[in-house]
């Protein structure tokens, strides 16, 4: 599914004295089955743009299309529905729920969709195996190393078999070696036909051969890409 943005604006605290235009007229198209990287200085609006694409928030103005559907006009309920079927999220802080096991964390996004339990467990185990975590399935997540936690986050993002993966600064908490490993995992995802959207100011990411396209943001506008 192609994602296209037309003249998207995002103003925080609109109408108040501290109003802040984080995104100022972005128009771009993200091709399916590719790895796209958004790069830019801190505060340039990468996360803001990503959350609008991932249906976590809405643009103040402009249009976002996901395939044929126009996201910006859909009511909240539908947005959640699209989000959980179409997008998988990997966050900078991993955002795993501590106290729960690796397996439980991976299963979490599937709970509201209530799939058949046997099948769900099978696909969860298959994912854990693919990312070399099967022996950790029953460990509490707070015992994991940074790299393992990142891989759990990837498994969790993939549990509902989304078409598009969104990763916000996925390597910010990883060292160079683990960052390279992460890009290797992104390559795997690309090979199985996922669309991947990453934000990063880490050269390991945006200079990686896995990345098909780099889009640079500056002060809420696209400067290159």
């Amino acid at each position: 599914m192609r994602i296209s943005l037309q003249d998207v604006h995002k103003v925080f605290n609109q109408g108040r004295p501290n109003a802040y235009p984080a995104i100022r007229g972005v128009t771009l198209t993200i091709e399916p089955n590719q790895v796209t990287c958004l790069k830019g200085a801190s505060g340039s609006g990468k996360s803001t743009l990503l959350s609008m694409i991932g249906c976590l928030s809405r643009p103040t103005s402009g249009r976002i299309h996901l395939g044929e559907r126009m996201l910006s006009s859909l009511p909240e309920r539908f947005l959640t529905d699209i989000r959980r079927h179409t997008f998988g999220f990997i966050f900078q802080q991993f955002n795993l729920i501590s106290g729960l096991t690796v397996l439980e964390n991976v299963l979490l996004p599937a709970y509201p969709l209530a799939p058949d339990f046997k099948q769900l467990k099978k696909s969860a185990n298959a994912l854990l195996e693919r990312f070399g975590l099967q022996h950790k399935a029953q460990s509490p997540v707070q015992w994991l190393s940074g790299g393992e936690a990142q891989r759990v986050a990837i498994c969790r993002a993939l549990i509902n078999d989304p078409q598009i993966l969104i990763a916000d600064e996925p390597t910010a908490n990883l060292d160079t070696r683990l960052s390279h490993a992460f890009m290797g995992q992104i390559r795997q995802l690309r090979e199985i036909g996922k669309t991947v959207l990453i934000t990063s100011h880490d050269p390991v990411v945006f200079e990686s051969p896995v990345v098909d396209r780099v889009i640079e943001l500056c002060d809420g506008q696209v400067v290159e890409g």
């Binding site: 309920r77 989000r83 959980r84 999220f89 955002n95 996004p109 509201p112 969790r156």
Partner: peptide, 16 residues
């Protein structure tokens, strides 16, 4: 609060 935020971000609805 953080956990509820995470749940929402990974696809849980308010109702869930």
């Amino acid at each position: 609060k953080r956990e509820i935020g995470i749940l929402k971000a990974i696809g849980w609805e308010t109702g869930d």
